[in-house]
């Protein structure tokens, strides 16, 4: 009997293997190998191009701690990540609430499409469109001056707010989608029950809806915070000279300075910091939920 069960489970594994294999093969090729290569690079003294001599070292990691600039930029990037995430919550959560609980049928589909639209457009195109809008003499400037009786000068381009605007626009759909899913799972009768007990809409939001939406808010925040901290495209194009962040420095090491070892080391430090932040905040947020 036991033997029979054993062969049964073994044949189960054998039949599952062909199904699992493509996924694991892909993960190995696409993530594990490049990442290992990066670990390897990060501990080299020199990129072994044109036969330069190299040896193993931890100096690249030490550079982060010896030069204050890197820490300053990392903190600026973390602040950017926090700020963009907060704006995404402020903008995305109400939108998700309206989508999940107020709109029905066709109008919901239409609005949903508008929310998803940024996903379908090319990131670079998106950023350059913002550049057209935000620069002096751009669309926003011209439009406001055409409407307003007095002259104002709108030039948000190449500033910190421009970077935040571009990033929020790119990432807010994540927050809308994750919150939409959790909000949709909240039974309407819970809201009705709360109202029948005399709770105002604000009280319902604070005591029932937001706590029950916590998983979506946390998932959305993680999906947004992590890539924003390492972002380089938006800061570079919309931020100009003010757009120097940790992500742009890493990018420089790879594409401009060709110091791959330092770029790789800086990336892994970022990865470590982000993982520590997620590990520290997730239990707190889970308890709140």
């Amino acid at each position: 009997m036991a033997e029979h069960v054993a062969t049964g489970s073994r044949s189960g594994l054998r039949s599952a293997l062909p199904l699992l294999l493509p996924a694991y093969l892909w993960l190995t090729v696409a993530i594990f190998l490049p990442l290992s290569a990066m670990v390897f690079f990060s501990s080299m003294t020199e990129l072994p191009l044109s036969g330069k001599a190299w040896s193993f070292t931890l100096e690249n990691y030490a550079t982060f701690f010896s030069e204050r600039l890197y820490l300053t930029l990392l903190l600026a990037s973390l602040r950017l990540g926090l700020e963009v995430t907060l704006w995404c919550v402020v903008i995305g959560f109400p939108a998700a609430y309206v989508l999940a609980k107020v709109l029905k049928g066709r109008s919901r589909e239409a609005i949903f499409l508008l929310v998803i639209l940024p996903f379908w457009s090319n990131g670079l195109v998106r950023i350059f469109s913002w550049a057209m809008v935000l620069r002096e003499g751009g669309i926003l400037d011209t439009a406001l001056n055409a409407v307003l009786p007095f002259k104002i000068n709108i030039d948000v381009m190449y500033s910190y707010p421009a970077v935040v605007i571009g990033l929020v626009h790119s990432y807010v759909p994540y927050m809308v989608l994750t919150c939409y899913l959790t909000l949709q799972a909240i039974d309407d009768s819970l809201i009705e029950a709360g109202r029948s007990l005399g709770a105002s809409r604000l009280q319902m939001l604070r005591r029932v809806i937001i706590p029950l939406s916590m998983p979506g808010l946390v998932a959305g925040a993680a999906l947004i915070f992590v890539p924003v901290v390492g972002s380089f495209m938006e800061p570079r194009i919309l931020g100009g000279r003010t757009g120097t962040f940790y992500g742009t420095v890493i990018e420089d090491q790879f594409v401009a300075v060709f110091n791959w070892p330092l770029g790789a080391a800086l990336s892994f430090i970022l990865l470590a910091v982000v993982l520590v932040i997620l590990a520290l905040t997730s239990p707190v947020l889970r308890r709140a939920a």
Binding site: D187, S189, L190, A193, R195, S196, G198, S200, L212
Partner: peptide, 18 residues
């Protein structure tokens, strides 16, 4: 409803799971 001072019991109970 919030100002009618009624008590209501729902078919699916509608207890707050949190």
């Amino acid at each position: 409803v919030e100002r009618r001072r009624i008590g209501m019991v729902f078919q699916n109970y509608a207890l707050f799971p949190n």
